[in-house]
Structure formats: C-alpha cells, structure tokens
Design a binder for these strands. Structure first.
Length: 432
DNA sequence: CGGCATACG
DNA sequence: CGTAT
DNA sequence: GCCG
C-alpha cells in the first residue's frame, strides 16, 4: 500500500467541525492590516466596474492614492511588528505554518511533506494525544514527530513560534492574502523594502495587474469568509441567470460547501446544460447576464481543452468556448436569508464574493465534480495514486489508462473510484 | 536518490 | 507569474 | 521532509 496511504486513512475520518481557516494575522496585531483597507462600499470609487480599467489609467492612479490615504490615515505606517500573542496551536495548524514557511522559502518538497502531515492528522476521527497514537501513521517522520512531541508536551513549538514572529513571514503572509499576489510577488515587494499595503500602493513604480487591482479594491470582502447562506444566495443568482438562457440547465454546488463546510473563501458552481453542446456558450451568456445586472465586479474566463486526442485540430474547435471563469460578484444583503456576513461597522447592504463557475460537457461532468469538490490535498493524493499505483492520468476532464491507452468513461464519481480500484469516498471525507 | 497533481490565462 | 480544486 |  504505497501512495494510497492517505486515501485509506481518509475513509476512517469523521466529520469535523467545519470552520473557516484561521489566519495568523488575526492572532497577532489584533486588527493590524485587516482593518478594512478597502471599504468597498464607502466610496463611489468602489462601485465603478474595474473590468476595463488599465493599470496606467488616471482612474487607477486615483484609486491608488485613495487606498493609500485610507491606509496611512488608519494604520501605523510602517506597521509595528509586535511579538505574536501565542494561542495554543493544533498540530495541524503548526504543520501548516511550517509548510507555508517552506513555501515562502521555495522549498516545495518539505512544504508538501508538512501539508501531507497536516492532512493525515485532519483525516483522523479524533485528535492525536500521544506520540504512540501517531506511531503507525504515514507521512510522519523524524521532523514532524519532533514538533509533535514538543507540542504534546508543552503546548507550543519553538520552531513554529520563531516563524510566526518572523517579520518576513508576517509580511509575505499579509501580501499573499491579496487576490492576485502569490509568493513570488510578495517576495519581490518584501525585497524592495515594502512592509504594508500602504507602502505597496504608494510606490509609483509598482504596476498592479487587473487581478491585483480587484484584490486590493475588494480586500475586506474577499478575505472574509463566505457563509453557506451567502453561497446559496449566489447559487440562486446564477440559477436565475441560467434559467433565462436554458430552463433545463442544472446547477451543482461544489468546493468546500459540498464537503459540508459551513464557511468558505469562495463559491464553486458547476453549470450543466441538458442539451449536449449547449454548454459551449453557456458561461459567456451567464457572464453577459451578470454584467447587464451590474453585479459583475471582476471576471476572468478560461477555455477548456476537452480534446480526447490532443490533436491540434481538435483543440482548435474547442478554443472559442469558456469552460470555467473566476468572478467577483456583488451580492445584495436582501438576497441572503440569514443576512450578510459583514464586518462590524459596515453599513453597506452588499458585499463582494469570489465565485468560480465551471461548465463541462455532460459526459465529463463526473470528472469535473470530482475535481472541483477537493480538497486540494485530496486531489493531489488521488492523482498521485492514479499515476503511481494504477498507471492512469487523472484530471478535471478525464481519466486516461496508460496501459490500455484509452480514456475511461464515468457518469458518476463512484465510476471513477471504481476505475481506480478504490472504495467510494464521501465528499465530507475528502476534507484532508 | 528522485518525485512530489494538474490545468488554464 | 497567477488562479482553481 | 517523507517515501518507494
């Protein structure tokens, strides 16, 4: 049982309390940078669609100035890095900190190892309380066990606390919390001596791309968790738009919410048309509809290569339709049953929400559903298992048997697990 | 000692 | 490089 | 960093 260790363990996992992921920012400086840098509704600036704004436009310069002003007036600038107030970290959180730190150091191997270690613990029915209980678990080696021992013994880890109090780690964590800013950009900004959003926004030589502009503009909203009620409301909005286009279309909520979580960082939806071939333009028509309603704040769409042959000619045909898109939508509070999940002191009656739409052809639905239900670590483990143990290639669109040199068909997720020779795993068991 | 998921803009 | 699971 |  080689690469499959994780998959078998997760069968035994039980449903855990679904909470949104802790952030480290919240623990240390109290409010710190999380203070709404971009009160998306407090200015008419925020209501203007950014869809066609170039980085160099006057509008954007005004926006940068505006946001910088907000930052500088409300925050200490540069921020005071206080030693973190250490809450007791769970073993999983400790491993995630280590993983993230290795990611910032561009050491993908150790990073992945700690992600797997966190994942293994998450998949257990109850928390590990002794080293003995962890003895036979996979993906736990010398380093992870040393950290475990320390935390089990005295509730904290020297190594983890050193990382959490590290100025570079805190700054990279802050910068990468912006939609469109990854480890490399964060590192670049940090190397140039920038330490806060206001410093980044005040730097004239920095040209934010479209995604980063939206990231800063809607920072307060996007970094706040999305509730299940809000996800349902978004689902209804998309459903209405789709129904006006094709009445028999079907909408499926995926991502973390399908895994039973109460909060998420975005809403993932699969749109499928009953008519074969109807999905070709479905997404762009939905986007048009959202645009007309004036609730589309950001949109990036991507084509799919659902070619079975990888022939360039086939590829060409599939080029002009869009299989997935990343959106930011304006969600009105009146549409949410339990009301908006708003920050304190936010008097707006709306918030921005990240929404991902996927529209696969019907015969690829099961693969798309499996691929978009996650979790990320589960998908990686499943694909690694397929490749190493079954000599198969798995992605969002299909499963290819390298031995038989053919694509395997599936109408349900269970079909795919069957092809892989695995017991079916319920969505809520895929959280690790 | 090599591999670590996979795809798209 | 960034995004998604 | 852990595993095959």
């Amino acid at each position: 049982m080689t690469g499959s260790c994780r998959l078998h363990i997760s069968v035994w996992s039980s449903r855990r309390k679904a909470t949104c992921r802790k952030t480290f920012r919240g623990q240390r400086q109290g409010q710190g940078h999380r203070r709404r840098i971009s009160p998306s509704g407090s200015s008419h600036l925020a209501r203007l669609p950014l869809l066609s704004v170039s980085h160099h436009s006057l509008f954007f310069k005004a926006l940068q100035f505006f946001m910088c002003h907000i930052c500088c007036s409300r925050l200490r600038c540069p921020p005071l890095r206080l030693p973190p107030v250490f809450v007791l970290l769970s073993l999983q959180d400790a491993f995630e900190v280590l993983a993230e730190n290795y990611e910032f150091s561009e050491m993908e191997g150790p990073c992945l190892a700690f992600r797997r270690a966190a994942s293994v613990l998450k998949s257990l029915p109850s928390a590990v309380e002794s080293l003995r209980a962890a003895q036979d678990l996979p993906c736990l080696g010398e380093h992870t066990k040393a950290v475990m021992e320390e935390i089990l013994r005295c509730g904290r880890s020297f190594e983890v606390e050193k990382i959490l109090s590290d100025e570079r780690f805190q700054t990279l964590k802050l910068f990468t919390s912006v939609f469109g800013v990854g480890p490399k950009t964060a590192e670049k900004w940090h190397r140039r001596g920038l330490r806060s959003f206001s410093e980044v926004l005040a730097e004239p030589s920095i040209h934010l791309n479209r995604m980063q502009q939206s990231g800063f503009l809607h920072y307060g909203d996007i970094s706040r968790a999305v509730s299940k009620a809000e996800a349902r409301a978004v689902g209804n909005i998309i459903d209405e738009a789709v129904r006006a286009i094709t009445p028999d279309a079907m909408l499926t909520l995926t991502g973390g919410f399908r895994r039973g979580k109460e909060f998420g960082h975005d809403v993932d939806l699969i749109v499928t048309a009953a008519e074969p071939g109807r999905e070709q333009n479905l997404l762009s028509e939905i986007i048009d509809s959202l645009k007309k309603q004036g609730i589309l704040l950001f949109c990036e769409y991507q084509a799919s290569t659902f070619d079975t042959t990888k022939l360039p000619s086939h590829r060409f045909e599939a080029m002009d339709h869009f299989a997935k898109c990343f959106l930011i939508l304006r969600l009105e509070g009146s549409r949410v049953d339990e009301g908006l999940h708003s920050a304190e002191g936010d008097s707006r009656n709306w918030r921005a929400v990240r929404v991902d739409l996927v529209s696969p052809p019907a015969d690829h639905f099961a693969f798309t559903l499996l691929g978009w239900t996650g979790s990320r670590q589960f998908e990686r483990d499943l694909r690694r298992f397929a490749r190493l143990e079954r000599r198969m290639l798995l992605d969002n669109h299909a499963l290819f048997d390298k031995t038989k040199k053919e694509f395997l068909t599936a109408t349900t997720e269970k079909d795919i697990f069957d092809h892989l020779g695995l017991e079916y795993i319920e969505p809520w068991q895929r959280n690790a």
